[in-house]
Design a protein around this nucleic acid. Structure first.
Lengths: 222, 222
DNA sequence: TCAAAAGTGTTTGCTATACACCCATGA
DNA sequence: TCATGGGTGTATAGCAAACACTTTTGA
């Protein structure tokens, strides 16, 4: 069955840039393409929009189909539509970005993906389409959102220690952060809630566990 | 001539939210639709993407065709794609936003627009499609970008007085701003360059004129 | 001479940064 | 007992906010 229009229509796809922290580095999820074009190359998980499907739902579906990853909060990044970005036809791609705690994810390659895996942002393979540009834009967004919202907690498990939180920050901003200033900041900001629990995560002395408070208390005032 | 695809394709459009400051209020540019659907309703300037046309170029072209406005810097805002946002067919709209000094613009209604005009954000008419949602998103973006970049200057003429700049800020944040703190901030930030000229803009005493420096001097260090 | 807008400094509190040692515990 | 990571306080400088009067000039 075919579909006919009076004017030419571009195809619309969605792609997802999913970041996580793994092995002490910022990594993202790629799939190896099973089909042409760019067969065998690594690419962002994504695919064609169904005609009666919401954009964000499409992104979530393609992510699940190709990598097995589900239950991730997606945020729209930007739409990429350069005329020659896909050799087959004109393709407009609406790109989403997301963060994940890696231990929650059950990775497996899906239908259109020969393989799926995590890659350090600093050591990406050669990519299909304009996905290197897309990833650069997503990384910029990640850095600017860091200071403006509470997204760091999406990298961490439900409960975590202050030192774990600090380590995540250090990886994200790629710099050392003073331990005492960091602790004071988070302990006085009120976005953390002590669980009362202690834990030992490899170190000797036990550390206090915290969880992220639902919302920034200041936000309630607006 | 018709165009046929193996799978259904959505249509892709671009729309533009163009803000300006006029009559002491924040206003934006709307056109009155000449054709169905929503014939006679006010809407954002925009239209269908040509198959070999860059997204941003499409936005600029439609803006020019429908309103006569040219030479505006466009920034991508977000893509809207709810399944039922257009009654004709599935339409994905890539929305751009932009700021303008109103005195530079030569407004005139174009082919697909029965009329074009400025409307205060606080007193919008009933709008076509989901354009009220789009405008709300654009306004949010405007407010957050205000503090993070130098976009205010896009509302002002080449040279301006500190009091004019302050008045623009007051309209944008919808609050009073302390005159002395405001002046000190801008005079010490180094983003203004005194022209050495004076002018009288209706008041009695003459005021010094400034222009925006090309770049934030701090940005050069990065 | 007065009305109307331009211009000018100081104080105070908060926030960001720099910086070094003690504590608890398992091996 | 020592190695490892968790936990703690103070001093300083820069920034944000509050606040009221003088100057210029045309009408």
């Amino acid at each position: 069955m075919t579909h006919t229009y009076q004017y030419p229509h571009p195809a619309v796809t969605t792609d997802v840039v999913l970041f996580t922290i793994r092995e002490d580095s910022l990594q993202l999820l790629l799939i190896r393409r099973r089909n042409a074009p760019f067969e065998g190359r690594w690419a962002l998980p994504g695919g064609f929009l169904d005609i009666d499907e919401d954009l964000e739902r499409c992104a979530a579906r393609e992510l699940a189909e190709e990598t097995g990853v589900t239950g991730i909060e997606l945020e729209q990044l930007r739409t990429f539509g350069a005329v020659d970005r896909d050799p087959r036809e004109r393709v407009i791609s609406v790109v989403y970005f997301a963060l994940a705690r890696v231990e929650n994810l059950h990775l497996r390659a899906g239908d259109d993906a020969a393989d799926a895996g995590w890659f350090a942002l600093r050591a990406l393979p050669e990519l299909a389409f304009d996905h290197d540009q897309i990833i650069r834009a997503a990384h910029e967004r990640l850095v600017t959102e860091l200071s403006r919202s509470k997204i760091v907690f999406q990298f961490l498990p439900e409960t975590f220690t202050l030192e774990e939180l600090r380590r995540v920050y250090e990886i994200l901003v790629d710099a050392e952060i003073d331990k005492r200033n960091f602790r004071r900041y988070f302990l006085t900001q009120g976005m953390l809630e002590p669980t009362g629990q202690l834990c030992r995560r490899g170190g000797q002395r036990q550390a206090r566990l915290y969880r992220a408070r639902e919302r920034d208390p200041v936000a309630h005032l607006g």
